[in-house]
């Protein structure tokens, strides 16, 4: 009748009997919830599994930047040791930045290159991090010319499996992906030196 209905129905009688504990039709909502949880993996809140397979997303928090006139910035929520992943950052890629969003504020928060037509917009706390160019002479705040940035943007490691294949795509293939609304690239933000809790994180791409 309907493939989507079939995809949530129990496959075995054992699974079905599991549901029968819930009285139909009075308990329609719990039954729907049970069916819904059966369609997703790792439904048990297994902390060990999360620690082992997850990447921390709250290593930084938003606060007004120490860099003058820079708006908000990202501040370490805890001590972050050198080489540690500060935040993972899946990216949305925009292939026609000059057509669509060249004047939008969003551009200031995305990554690009003068010889490429791709624009990469982070989906994590990376958007908060101020850029600290080694060429610039900031005298105050997190971007201190003596020390330079304390974090670096790199291509994501194996935790984001599609990255490797996507980095080998041509612009034409990336554009096709963009047209079919798919994304598959990610950055890692890595601490370049030990960062103390409450210290502002600034990146160097």
């Amino acid at each position: 009748m309907n493939e989507r209905v079939a995809s949530i129905l129990p496959v075995t009688t054992a699974e079905l009997s599991n549901l029968e504990e819930i009285k139909y039709p009075a308990d329609l909502e719990p039954m729907a919830a049970r069916l819904a949880t059966s369609t997703i993996k790792h439904t048990q809140q297994n902390l060990d599994w999360i620690y082992e397979n997850g990447l921390c997303m709250d290593n930084v928090r938003a606060e007004p930047s120490t860099i003058p006139l820079a708006g908000y910035g990202a501040f370490a929520a805890r001590f972050l040791s050198k080489g540690e992943l500060i935040t993972p950052s899946p990216l949305l890629h925009v292939m026609e930045p000059y057509e669509n969003i060249s004047n939008q504020l969003l551009v200031n928060y995305c990554f690009g290159h003068e010889r490429s037509s791709i624009l990469l917009c982070p989906m994590s706390a990376l958007v908060l991090m101020n850029h600290c160019s080694r060429r610039m002479q900031h005298s105050e705040g997190a971007c201190d010319p003596a020390n330079g940035p304390n974090a670096e943007v790199r291509w994501a490691t194996d935790w984001y499996p599609s990255n490797k294949r996507w980095l080998n795509m041509t612009l034409s293939e990336l554009h096709e992906m963009y047209m079919s609304e798919k994304s598959g690239l990610a950055f890692d933000v890595i601490a370049l030196r030990d960062i103390q809790a409450d210290e502002e994180v600034s990146t160097f791409p």
């Binding site: 930045p97 551009v107 200031n108 990554f111 990469l120």
Partner: peptide, 10 residues
Amino acid sequence: RHYISISDDI
């Protein structure tokens, strides 16, 4: 309005 430039080597 300007994107953040990624470095040549990446």
